[in-house]
Amino acid sequence: MSLNYVFEILPSLFQGAWLTLQIFFWTLVVSIPLGIVVSLGLTSKIRPLQWILEVYVWLMRGTPLLLQLIFVFYGLPIIGIVFQRYDAALVAFILNYAAYFAEIFRGGFQSVSVGQFEAARVLRLSYWQTIRKIIIPQVVKIVIPSIGNEVINLVKDSSLVYVIGLGDLLRAGNVATSRDVTLVPLLLVALIYLILVGICTLVLRRVEKRYSYFK
C-alpha cells in the first residue's frame, strides 16, 4: 500500500465524509427536538393525537430505514411528491430518527416522578416553565446513554443514502475500490467511520459528565 495512493484518494473520501457529516448533523439537529415534541404528544391526554403519533412511531420503527429512503426518493414521485436526493435523505432520516428519539424521551418523561410536576404546580409554575426548567434537565440526564446509542447508529446508518445515489463516504470508498481493485479505500472508509464514532463517544461522555452534578 503506497502512501501516495492513500493521499490520492483521501480527498474524494473526505468529500464523501463531508456529506455523511451533513446528513448526520441535520438529522440530529432536527430530529431530537422533533422527538421531544412527539414524546410530549405520546404522553398527552389528547387521545386522537396520541393515537396518530403511535401509528407514526410504529411505521417508522416497524419498517426498514432503507425502505423508507427508497419510498421517499423513488416512491413518492409517483404520486407527484418529488424531492432532490439530498432532501429525500434528510426527510427519511429525520422522520425515522425522530420516532426513535420520541420513544426514548417518552421513557425519560415517564421516569420523572409525578411529585416533580406536583411540586412545580403548587409553586404555580406554568406547564412550559416546568418542562423547561425542571423536567427536561432530568430527562436529558436519563436519556443520554440511549441517545448516545442512536447517535452512533446514525453515523453508520447514514451510509444507506448510497441507495439513492448520494455520494457519501461509503460510496466514495466503494468507487475507488472497484476502480483501482484494492482494499485500501474500504479500510480507510472503516477507519474514518471509527474516528467519527470515536469523536461521538468522547463528546457523549463529556455531556454525560456535565450532567453528573445532580442525582
Binding site: 411529585g115 416533580q116 411540586a119 409554575l125 416553565q129 426548567k133 434537565p137 432530568q138 442525582k215
Partner: peptide, 24 residues
C-alpha cells in the same frame, strides 16, 4: 411541603427556592 419533599434534583438549594419567585 410534600411528604417526600419533592425538591428539584437538578437545581441547587438556592435555585430550588428562587425559581418560582423569579418565574412566577
Amino acid at each position: 411541603v410534600f411528604q417526600d419533599f419533592n425538591l428539584f434534583p437538578n437545581l441547587s438549594v438556592m435555585d430550588n427556592i428562587t425559581l418560582a419567585p423569579m418565574m412566577v
